[in-house]
Design a protein around this nucleic acid. Structure first.
Lengths: 315, 315
DNA sequence: TTGTAGGCGTTATCAA
DNA sequence: TTGATAACGCCTACAA
């Protein structure tokens, strides 16, 4: 007990005892067993994070933000990827709850009923990250995918484009993509423009898909004057393909992207895009989670971290 | 005890008891406490991973590979980033050992003496990932940065380039970069070419650094006919800058990169590079670690996963 | 096949 | 300020 105190609350132990303990710790290379500590105190310093994919650099920024904050506060981070499936997410959540994590951060905002029930029973705080969902489990830290897509579409409209193509990642089981799509439609509607299905495309992720989308839209009869690639690296693939073909952007077709990937600013021409607070989402998520864990806050919470349009020469 | 058995070794319990337990588990939403399990059995299912940076997409591939294998085997993954510093790595390792992880995967191959001592005392298996180091702590799964850089340099020599520039990331405290640099030098030496300091540059990571390196080498008096960017996205920055300036590659200067970033193949012209088994490194690391944890293997081990040159139009 | 006893390494609590 | 005792929830070992 005295050792425990000397290590956790050194001020509550005599200097002499403290010194002896420190010496002994050094001598034997003692590393306290936090499993036992957690079991005894029913407090854990581990946070569980479930992202659709670790490999995706956008999520990676968020993870880095989370990791930085947790490290500073002496917490550990457990990660699992759900591969974009709610069942895998449920499995990950179950595993984390088995490890008695102190809190969860989930990127997806759609969960299996069982996953929700487990989290409720565990009674631990949760942050959702993917989009400013209307039905949060608990806390949300994100930006509005709907508003971001709408703002970019309006930006294009303001620039005079009238036949705006929209390329999205798969809409199924992903509230983020659906939000973006609805934002696009909302902007058109407010502008009194018709929705033309020949201008809308759903494609898998990846550079190659961006290239393919470019051709399909240009040759699909919709005659787009601009294309808004609402996902990942799609716009990069398309922009590079224009370079390859010697097509002038935005004269041939304007191109807009959805994320502040460094590279977009280095392309020729640099590509208009949205700045999304990826790292900030991670940092704030970790912070609000720790606030709750440490009893500094209670109750639901929704933090809108906003976005920003970066206007460049491609539009 | 019967419940424990029903859950872990259902075949050793009567069907009737099994059914009753399953029913009860469902009814109360019971999630076994793995902390208590680990404490009692002194076995853990958690693996600790320390990478220099989570945000870097190259490490992200490796992490994904690790995560996939661990998930399939019912193990969890704890992550920390060392920010490229051995002291931060040591702190992460200490935290992981406190959590009684079953094994460690470290990307860096240089560690503080204290970190090494702690790992030794803990007696858990370790895999190092960054390069085929000669003095592994325990197991290594990687490729040879030295050989890869040498091979690419020789490739350029074979193509007839004689004044080959070399751009590296910071050499301090990073065996990988030093290995690459030595590989470059070895190739020159074997070819009987002099080492010209005007052709070698050390820069920070990032697209912009690649652009800057391009100019500094072209204007530095070394008159390179090819530049080998031995790190990350440096080559992308340089290649895009050539596009922007309308410089022909490889006529103006040939460009070679060091990693199989998808994008390199989509640039104009596509950029020659090395294919490195990033994901495979992650998968194999997890596999050999599990082999040891589950007692299927013992002793040191070095797995060389090789690399491959992807010759494209930029050289 | 089922159950009992004891202990894993901490921390909460209370007593000295 | 220090120490004794009893959990925490599971698993090992052994007994019924």
């Amino acid at each position: 007990m005295t050792v425990s105190r000397a290590l956790k609350t050194p001020e509550r132990v005599s200097p002499e005892v403290r010194a002896r303990v420190e010496e002994a710790v050094r001598a034997v290379g003692y590393v306290p067993n936090r499993l036992a500590g957690s079991l005894s105190s029913s407090r854990s310093s581990v946070i569980g994070l479930v992202v659709p994919s670790i490999e995706n650099s956008l999520f990676a920024s968020t993870i880095q933000g989370i990791s930085d904050v947790l490290r500073r506060h002496g917490h550990e981070l457990m990660i699992a990827s759900s591969g974009y499936g709610a069942a895998a997410e449920e499995a990950a959540i179950r595993a984390f709850l088995g490890q008695r994590v102190a809190g969860l951060i989930l990127h997806d905002t759609t969960h299996t009923p069982e996953a929700v029930a487990m989290i409720r029973r565990a009674g631990i705080p949760v942050v959702e990250n993917g989009t400013l969902t209307r039905q949060p489990l608990d806390m949300v830290v994100s930006y509005s995918n709907h508003d971001a897509a709408k703002a970019m579409t309006q930006h294009l409209l303001r620039l005079g484009y009238r036949r705006i193509g929209f390329v999205t990642l798969p809409l199924a089981a992903n509230e983020r993509s659906r939000d973006r799509r609805r934002g696009y439609e909302a902007a058109l509607e407010e502008a009194g423009l018709p929705y033309d299905p020949r201008l809308v495309l759903e494609v898998p992720p990846g550079l190659a898909a961006g290239v393919e989308a470019l051709y399909r839209l240009l040759e699909g009869g919709g005659e787009p004057d601009a294309i808004f690639f609402a996902g990942d690296v799609l716009a990069i693939g398309a922009a590079l393909e224009c370079t390859r073909r010697g097509w002038k952007v935005p004269e041939k077709v304007a191109i807009a992207a959805f994320d502040n990937i460094d590279l977009l600013g280095h392309l020729v021409p640099p590509v208009t895009t949205l700045r999304l607070p990826r790292q900030e989402i991670g940092r704030r998520s970790a912070e609000v989670l720790l606030d709750r864990i440490q009893g500094r806050a209670t109750g639901p919470l929704a933090i809108d971290l906003r976005f920003e349009i970066i206007h460049r020469a491609s539009t």
